[in-house]
Amino acid sequence: MLRMPLFSVRRSCVLAIFPLLAACGDSPSGAPGSMAPPQFTARADPMLGQRLITQYQCGSCHAIPGVAASRGRLGPSLQAFGKRSYIAGRVPNSPDALAQWLVAPASLVPDTAMPSMGVSPEDARHMAAYLGQLE
């Protein structure tokens, strides 16, 4: 009986499984094999989000690139928000978490100074798309 060293068996298994794992990832175009980083909600419209950010007057507390009259200093600047790892320094930054934050900030960070502005879940998706693209 031919015995293969344990190291060779493990290496063979890894080499055989790797192409299968790589094929599981989908790119935004749907082509298998390319693992794209998470995107800020593809089904949302960032340009509509930009208008909604103006409508909800987010600029009264925040400085936001591309949003007219957003010179607020009470809240942090939202410049390069898409590169941030956390929302409010506590919540991992993802499209869904950001949308939830915009709808009900205290549901994620109970002691936050960010008020609930009456943002609908649909509007929040678009606003999150705009903020997520800021780099």
Rank of each mutant, 00 (worst) to 15 (best):
I53R: 01
R51K: 10
C24H: 13
A22L: 15
A44Y: 00
A31P: 05
C58Q: 00
R11I: 11
G33M: 13
P38Q: 10
A22I: 09
L48M: 11
G33P: 13
R51I: 01
P46F: 04
S34A: 15
V9G: 04
C13I: 15
M47A: 13
M35S: 15
L21V: 14
Q50V: 01
Q55H: 04
L6D: 03
A68C: 03
A16D: 04
Q39W: 01
A16I: 09
S70G: 12
P65C: 11
G49H: 02
A68F: 05
S34I: 15
P32I: 11
R43M: 08
A36M: 09
G66Y: 02
C13P: 00
A22R: 09
A31Q: 15
Q57I: 05
L48C: 09
G33F: 10
A31H: 13
M47Y: 02
C58F: 00
L21D: 10
D45L: 06
V9Q: 03
V9Y: 01
G25Q: 05
V14D: 07
S29V: 09
L20I: 14
Q57S: 09
G30E: 04
A63Q: 11
Q55S: 06
L48D: 05
P19M: 07
R43S: 15
S27I: 00
C58T: 00
Q55C: 02
C13Q: 13
A63I: 08
A63W: 02
R10W: 10
I53Q: 00
A23D: 08
P65D: 12
T54A: 10
L20K: 10
P5A: 09
C61H: 03
V67G: 08
A23R: 10
D45A: 04
S27A: 12
G30W: 01
G25R: 05
F18D: 09
L15A: 14
S29K: 06
S8E: 04
S12R: 10
P37C: 07
P37R: 14
T54M: 02
A44I: 02
A31C: 10
S60D: 07
S27F: 05
A16K: 06
S12I: 07
G30L: 05
L15C: 15
S8V: 08
A69H: 08
D26P: 01
M47E: 12
L20T: 10
M35L: 14
P5N: 06
V14Q: 07
R11G: 15
A16V: 11
G66N: 05
A69G: 13
R51Y: 01
R71P: 13
A16G: 13
V67R: 01
G49Y: 03
P28D: 08
D26N: 10
C24K: 12
S29N: 11
L21M: 12
G30D: 07
Q55Y: 02
P32V: 14
G59R: 00
C24S: 15
M47R: 05
F18G: 12
G66W: 00
S29W: 07
V67N: 04
P19G: 11
G25M: 04
A31M: 09
T54P: 00
A22T: 13
F40C: 06
V14G: 07
G30K: 03
A42N: 07
L15S: 13
P5R: 02
